[in-house]
Write a protein that binds this DNA or RNA. Structure first.
Length: 375
DNA sequence: GGGCCTTTGAAGCTA
DNA sequence: TAGCTTCAAAGGCCC
């Protein structure tokens, strides 16, 4: 992936990302940021439904990709290409993003400064290069959270009380502004923060340990998969076990500091509940497909918010864990899909797995190949 | 019970 | 340096 800005302009990642959608003609949302989950839901559902209906009308209603079982479960790829023939007229009229990638790119530079900040022209009235968040969430609140469950949702004094979603009538899930999911703090710590911005330059103690000042592990730290060694009666595990731990075991016990969330992850975190509320889907794979398309339908300004958030997220993360590297988490997960695929590819010789094939082809290639029976 | 699926982006790794 | 790989979240599904 081309790093468009070596000067730390993370937001320019959006640029790259815009390019990625160039040849997909993917944008079907009506208006930026107002993607209808129902429409997306219709897509996903129709895809799911068509999976069973496909036998009777597989000729032209929808091209399905009998790839992996997951692809069968979420046969959305490439979504627009599949649907365009029949749904465009009814559902996705002229896509406002038909020229999205082309139109946006040259404009992008005008809004971003080499350091990654939004240029004044791109800013609204606020000096903070983060546009006011439309989803009743302070744009910077993700920075103070990392996990919903590590700390119970303690509402800071004077903060919002639990709300009922006016749209759905469903109790709105704890909102990041009340319950920051990314870098959650102990209640006390939260109370010490007068403003979310305070976290941008946190007066945090030297982060060479995994504990907050409160003694509670930082929320970005996930309890490592550690075999609990019998501790001789002392329940100050973090300190005492560490002292007596051999170097190797100490490394094993090294707390798992998670990667900071990128812009899209932040967006997903925020929007997932909304999408789930708007539709009946619960499977993350399907939800993520919707969110992925919504992400692309966002305006640049809206995306810029999340890129900025992500940038600050990384900033904060690096301040909290200056010695942490993404490398630390490499190999922490068990088995990766690609491993399996590569194994399959090896076994299949010149015939790579379909997924691998897809990764090497444009979605349209896949469509064409399926449409013409090449696959 | 653990891995897979799905998405995008950041960062590490490799040739 | 380009291209590939891994991980981050999430929750249902599958083996």
């Amino acid at each position: 992936m081309p790093q468009l800005n070596s000067g730390g302009g993370d937001e320019l990642g959006a640029n790259d990302e815009l390019i990625r959608f160039k040849d997909e003609g993917e944008q079907e949302e009506k208006s930026p940021g107002e993607g209808s989950a129902e429409g997306d839901l219709a897509d996903v559902k129709s895809s799911l439904v068509n999976e069973s209906e496909n036998h009777s009308s597989d000729s032209d209603s929808e091209v399905r990709i009998p790839l992996s079982h997951a692809s069968r479960r979420y046969p959305l790829l490439p979504p627009t290409a599949f649907r365009r023939q029949h749904q465009d007229a009814a559902f996705f009229k002229s896509s406002p993003y038909a020229g999205y990638p082309f139109l946006m790119i040259p404009d992008l530079g005008g809004h971003y400064l080499p350091n990654g900040a939004l240029s004044p022209s791109a800013r609204t009235s606020n000096k903070v290069p983060v546009v006011q968040h439309p989803h009743h969430m302070h744009p910077l609140t993700p920075l103070i959270t990392y996990s919903n469950d590590r700390f119970s949702p303690v509402t800071p004094p004077g903060h919002l009380s639990p709300e009922i979603d006016p749209k759905t009538g469903i109790p709105r899930p704890p909102h990041p502004s009340e319950l920051s999911p990314y870098y959650p703090l102990s209640p006390g710590a939260v109370g010490q923060i007068p403003h979310p911005l305070g976290w941008l330059v946190p007066q945090v103690p030297p982060p060479h340990h995994s504990l907050h000042t409160s003694g509670i592990p930082h929320p970005a730290i996930v309890s490592p998969v550690v075999k609990q060694e019998p501790c001789s009666g002392n329940h100050s595990p973090n300190l005492n076990t560490k002292q007596s731990m051999p170097v190797k075991k100490e490394e094993e016990k090294k707390p798992h500091v998670k990667k900071p969330l990128n812009a899209f992850m932040l967006y997903m975190k925020e929007m997932r509940a909304k999408v789930v509320a708007e539709c009946t889907l619960k499977e993350s794979a399907a939800i993520n497909q919707i969110l992925g398309r919504r992400w692309h339908s966002l305006s640049r300004e809206e995306q810029a918010k999340y890129y900025e958030l992500a940038r600050k997220e990384r900033q904060l993360h690096s301040q909290l864990y200056p010695t942490w590297s993404a490398r630390d988490n490499y190999g922490k997960r068990k088995k990766r899909k690609r491993e399996k695929q590569s194994q399959e590819a090896e076994g299949m010789g010149s015939t790579p797995s379909t997924s691998t094939q897809c990764s090497m082809m444009t979605p349209w290639d896949v469509v064409c190949q399926y449409a013409f029976g090449a696959l």
